[in-house]
């Protein structure tokens, strides 16, 4: 029996090793590319004899990449904060008051989660031209908020369902209004789900390409995804620098992920539509 368990553990570890190798290989290849010079024609699987950081220097030259990371960070921070506030505010009545109106609203929000951004981008672009939102941060922020909100409201609604209604009722008897209940009772207990909401919606905005492509057309306003596109467009022959830029763009996410992986996993489970 013991021998069988040891063999089982060995098989599981070997199998995992193979799976890890398959999943990590494209990232490994990209890193190797980033560390090699352009004139190094060895196989992309083989690490360079003398690794160079020139590609990273080249990718960072002119500060455009850093600017794009900064732009993205600003958009993500502002949009995510507002998504949290508006999401929590809307989640409260939807979880607590089962009126016809709130039920219809919940259903419509689920619908919005399915809207493919590209299917509305032509009219959305036209609308933003009219209100002068093209090439502005507020334009992209307001779209990021709108399309991030359904997930946030959905997660807050589910979470508030798990807070005992007895607390609300006690507060109501104590003379709290339905609005102060939200600030006194509900808001203080939202911390755990807020971490998940922030990570999930923040990452989505960080990774967005479609809205940003249409709204931010000036080079100065480029976000990470738009910036990376310029490294890889046809005519750019320096693939090693492109690989370095791509590594730099992915790095912040990996760092955040390694520190907060618990919340990532929780976020996926929390946001799962049942």
């Amino acid at each position: 029996m013991r021998k069988r368990n040891i063999r089982r553990a060995l098989v599981k570890n070997l199998l995992s090793l193979l799976i890890i190798a398959i999943h990590i290989s494209p990232f490994y290849v990209q890193l190797i590319m980033a560390l090699k010079t352009r004139r190094d024609f060895s196989s992309r699987w083989v690490p360079p004899a003398s690794p160079t950081l020139d590609n990273f220097t080249l990718a960072l030259k002119g500060g455009e990449l850093m600017q794009s990371i900064l732009n993205t960070a600003i958009i993500v921070l502002i949009a995510t904060s507002l998504i949290i506030v508006i999401g929590a505010m809307s989640g409260y009545p939807l979880a607590r008051y089962g009126t016809k109106f709130s039920k219809t609203l919940s259903l419509l929000l689920l619908g919005v989660m399915m809207v493919p951004p590209l299917s509305v981008l032509v009219p959305l672009y036209r609308e933003l031209v009219m209100i002068k939102g093209i090439n502005t941060f507020w334009g992209i922020i307001i779209l990021s908020i709108t399309y991030g909100l359904p997930t946030s409201i959905f997660m807050y609604t589910n979470f508030i369902h798990t807070i005992p209604v007895a607390l609300d009722e006690a507060a109501l008897l104590d003379g709290c209004s339905k609005y102060t209940i939200f600030f006194r009772i509900i808001m203080p207990s939202l911390k755990p789900v807020t971490a998940s909401v922030a990570i999930l919606t923040g990452i989505n905005i960080w990774n967005d390409y479609s809205f940003q492509l249409y709204i931010l057309q000036k080079p100065k306003l480029r976000t990470i995804t738009l910036m990376l596109k310029t490294f890889f467009t046809e005519g750019n022959t320096n693939l090693n620098a492109a690989a370095a830029a791509s590594c730099l763009a992915i790095l912040p996410l990996i760092v955040i992920y390694l520190f907060l992986s618990k919340y990532f996993v929780q976020g996926v489970v929390d946001s799962a539509v049942k």
């Binding site: 009545p93 709130s102 419509l108 929000l109 509305v120 609308e127 779209l143 399309y147 909100l149």
Partner: peptide, 25 residues
């Protein structure tokens, strides 16, 4: 406040955004 009034007030910002940037487009 009636239930519907609370729902309306608290969801107003979200609803406005959805109307202007989802329904209208």
């Amino acid at each position: 406040a009636s239930d519907n009034q609370v729902v309306l007030v608290m969801t107003l910002p979200a609803v406005l955004l959805m109307i202007v940037f989802v329904a209208v487009p």
